[in-house]
């Protein structure tokens, strides 16, 4: 399937918004960017590598030549791009279960948005506004964002152990090694293939 490369899924969605509502949404994003706790849930869910929302005004679609017909639109559009781990259903289930309120603030301004709860109409809406990805690349297809963060913690712990292990006695080293083990013991899961979507 084209939307998936390795452990990561590329989602694209586009939703129409009445132009006056775009300003409210911009205001919300401004807050989201500046109030860290609002982002905390996204971080804690920890299944998105990168995501972005792009508001595109109805008169600002790129126009590269006079021969290209100008767009003639009534709505502004909200584009959403996400690079997430897990299956489509898992992703939307989790969003709906724990991020419902935040998502509503983002998509509430889009036409016909049903709300993130209950999940079935929410999924139907996403399925309708999603469009497919033709080509998708990731530099580390075998790793989820959890894997990446775990790997960086292991790297750091290893560097610390290595720095301190120069002139130590075997006994001292062994102690440091146990401390090292305890510090990385939650971060050693192997990387590899992901299960397939349902």
């Amino acid at each position: 399937m084209t939307n998936i490369t390795g452990k990561t899924y590329a989602m694209n969605a586009i939703t129409p918004m009445k132009p006056w509502k775009t300003w409210i949404l911009r205001g919300f994003f401004f807050l989201l960017g500046h109030i860290k706790p609002l982002q905390a849930d996204l971080v804690n869910l920890s299944f998105i590598h990168f995501a972005r929302w792009v508001v595109i005004r109805r008169d600002s679609f790129p126009r590269l030549s006079a021969a290209q017909p100008a767009e003639d639109l009534q709505y502004d559009y909200l584009l959403f791009f996400s690079n997430f781990n897990g299956t489509w259903n898992q992703y939307i289930d989790a969003f709906s279960a724990v991020l419902g309120k935040g998502l509503n603030l983002v998509w509430f301004w889009s036409e016909k948005y049903p709300g993130a709860v209950p999940v079935t109409p929410f999924k139907q809406y996403i399925a309708r506004v999603q469009f497919e990805t033709d080509f998708y690349y990731t530099a580390y297809p075998h790793a989820t964002t959890n894997d990446v963060k775990a790997a960086h913690r292991v790297q750091q712990a290893l560097d610390t152990l290595a720095d301190g292990s120069g002139n130590t006695s075997p006994a001292e080293f062994e102690q440091a090694y146990v401390r090292f083990l305890v510090s990385v013991q939650r971060d050693l899961g192997s990387t590899g293939l992901a299960p397939i979507g349902v």
């Binding site: 452990k7 989820t144 959890n146 894997d147 775990a150 899961g189 192997s190 992901a194 299960p195």
Partner: peptide, 16 residues
Amino acid sequence: QQQWIEYGNDSHLGNE
């Protein structure tokens, strides 16, 4: 079966 038995990402265990 798929995510929790045959895979480990939800518990931050990678592919374990």
